[in-house]
Design a protein around this nucleic acid. Sequence first.
DNA 1: CTTCTTACA
DNA 2: TGTAAGAA
Length: 119
Amino acid sequence: MRIGELSRRTGVSERALRYYEEQGLLRPERRPSGYRVYRDVDVAAVRRIRVLLTAGLSTAQIVEVLPCMVDDDDLLAPICPELVDELVKQRDRIGAAIDELAATRANLDTIIANERRAS
DNA sequence: CTTCTTACA
DNA sequence: TGTAAGAA
């Protein structure tokens, strides 16, 4: 199938699909015309990429992590133990980010609470 | 009509 | 990431 069909079947824009390829996430063949040719398995591949992207992983991380994962029905399951380690680190980073945002929000709340009427 | 690349009021 | 432009 060509990019248009893959886009329709995955709900991912053609722009994004070309970007994924640029990042090494997909390696479609090329027809002499230059058109990209995707295989059926790429539909599932794109879904996995989406899941990881939504989980906050960068495309670079996904490139390394993807080969260590397998489709367990509808979910993604990590195979390599070292991968689980990286995922845990990623989870911790998110936790840290949440804490920082909570702190900045608290600062904002304080400032808002200081509102005073103009005399 | 579909895709490709490149570039950005 | 979207989108416009010019070419195939």
